[in-house]
Write a protein that binds this DNA or RNA. Sequence first.
DNA 1: ACCTGAACACCGTTCAAGT
DNA 2: ACCTGAACACCGTTCAAGT
Lengths: 225, 225
Amino acid sequence: MAVEMTTRNRLPREGAGEQLSREQIAATALALVDREGLEALSMRRLAQEMGTGTMTLYGYVRDKDDLLDAVIDAAAAESPAWGEGDGPWRDRLTSLMRELRRGLERHPALIQLRLRRPIMTPGALRGTEAGLQVLVAAGLDPVEASRAFRTLFLYTFGFAAFVTEGGREEHRAQVRAAFAVLPPEDYPLLTSSVEELADVLGGDEQFEFGLARVLDGIEARLPAA
Amino acid sequence: MAVEMTTRNRLPREGAGEQLSREQIAATALALVDREGLEALSMRRLAQEMGTGTMTLYGYVRDKDDLLDAVIDAAAAESPAWGEGDGPWRDRLTSLMRELRRGLERHPALIQLRLRRPIMTPGALRGTEAGLQVLVAAGLDPVEASRAFRTLFLYTFGFAAFVTEGGREEHRAQVRAAFAVLPPEDYPLLTSSVEELADVLGGDEQFEFGLARVLDGIEARLPAA
DNA sequence: ACCTGAACACCGTTCAAGT
DNA sequence: ACCTGAACACCGTTCAAGT
């Protein structure tokens, strides 16, 4: 009985088999961040969420920076098997970039973190290796292939990073408000097609358009087939 | 004498003519952020820096969010006269994007803020208007022009956002360390040319390569000249 | 050994009081 | 009217004590 109580007190609230671990802490933190945003993640709040004392977390995580690294790794581990299958180089890179976009948009709050802490784990680099192989098979040398892949990556990352917050309608309202104060004589194009432009900035269509342009630019560098 | 003391106490430490103002607060905050990074900027620290009480700042700024907006505006106001001159469409867009990159890299700590708070002030939109005009003059309709401009913008922004922290050599060391643990049989390309690849990710050469690819992709959409 | 409360040095912001 | 100290509800992390 005494043993049972001690045991129950030592474990997180969820019950029997659960052990506190770095992975479990990261998973809980990731869920919290998805639910309430990055600014909701604090050591104190997370500990409370897990039913432990704040300082207990420091047994599994060096400091908050280390926690954030663990969260990013946890999110990266969800990615699908990147770059499977074969087919024309262009189709393969298109789906690789769509998968990258989806992976980034699954946890929008993490995008700003990934900018400062690029993930270079083997898992995350599988996509890079796959992309390089496709480009080399298409005829580029390794250095140019990695420059080309980097271009695709930066476009996709930039796209995902700019989309994360606020709904579509809120965004349109912002654009409309900003354009309304522009003097038409100095801004003839922006003021002449406000409604069309407000729609252009995000969305699948913009993503696919830009991706296709970058691929066209890469295609022009391939040796003639 | 009594008056003089009151006056001296009310003014910031620098002396006679200086009035506290939103602009001055933003400028001081920007300097602080440039010097010590975004996380060094707190209301308390900034007030101390300016020689006033913390709460005095709230007379000029609604809250910290509003302060950050003011800082972003201050940084944006430094931008040069965008898109001046004429010449071939490609040259004009190239220098527009180089200027955008320089503007972003002048205050690296602000890039993450700009992702969440896109600047849509008239000043910031001058570059967009100029870019659209160039593309429309080259033969695109306004919607496709803005999609194309957005593509250039996202690539450039993505490039700048990924560069901000850590020196070049530190970055190379990170890449080397990450690649060293990859099993060569699964990562033949990444492991075969580590040194070359470590250099590829950033730098002027990568920026210019990617920019040229995007422009090539846009060029392919122009009506035959 | 493992866990954790108290304490320290910070935050942003409200509120009431100071001049 | 303009400014601001004290207070409140938060932070991350150190340290010493609890089991």
